[in-house]
Design a protein around this nucleic acid. Structure first.
Lengths: 127, 127
DNA sequence: TGACGACTACGAAACACTTCGTATAATGGG
DNA sequence: CCCATTATACGAAGTGTTTCGTAGTCGTCA
């Protein structure tokens, strides 16, 4: 099975619920999404079925209520989303993308610290 | 006129041509895009008309061949694209997005230098 | 057992994105 | 002046995303 496609907007929101909650039933996902998005039950069910077809989630159908879990890791998906945006808008350069993101000046001190550490590591490698 | 919507994938490619070339005719844009995307003439024309309707480009119709120009600045658009991805996948945190982008380890030494300078500036502000 | 509640499956509508075919109008050379 | 060329305008098809209505299934309990 090749890598699943990038999740669409609604699919990404469902993945975020699954990443946060772990394996969940349709109802559990729907209740989590209802607050954020007002999604109806059959809408969420349909998406989970579509996402299962795409390989974005796995399904355990042993119980009456099927249990869905993310089939793609959060880090890898974030990675691919960043690479996708970099390709579409930043000549494929994640560095330029990072610069733009930092220029928003909304990073917290902890995030800045993490970025500085990573930066030192990267500059050390380059030397 | 409110802010135009974010450009779609094909629209962004057209904007990139206009940002690079400056005001251009349909044919000029189409020739630039043909190499990258194989776009046909009427396809590009249709997009420019749609983008004009959305306020993404301006049009000078005085000459026989209309001349289109980007109506949105490149920096502002990149900014909005980054903010959009941050909202959809990074809890609205551009800092987390920047971290992910840097973790791809594909930034050039010059980009790393720029990021380090910006970082110092941001950390100086925070102190 | 039969009705009720909760579940899954599926079709289809509404919308957006992308592409292109065709119709129509302007331009300029012979 | 006419025709070939080049332009714009527009409709529509094909695909993908999102949403929901409806139908059918399954277990439970009175």
């Amino acid at each position: 099975m090749p890598t699943p496609p990038l999740p669409t907007g609604a699919e990404l929101e469902i993945l975020r619920v699954l990443w946060q909650r772990g394996p969940s039933t349709v109802r559990e996902v729907q209740e989590a999404l209802h607050a954020v998005r007002g999604s109806g039950y059959t809408t969420v069910l349909k998406f989970l079925q579509i996402m299962h077809g795409k390989g974005l989630v796995t399904r355990d159908a042993r119980a009456t209520s099927h249990v869905y879990a993310a089939a793609v890791a959060r880090e890898a998906t974030e990675h691919r989303l960043v690479a996708d945006l970099a390709a579409r808008a930043f000549e494929g350069s994640p560095g330029r993308l990072a610069l733009r993101a930092l220029a928003e000046r909304r990073a917290s001190p902890e995030e800045l610290r993490e970025i500085r550490l990573l930066l030192q590591q990267l500059e050390g490698e380059g030397a």
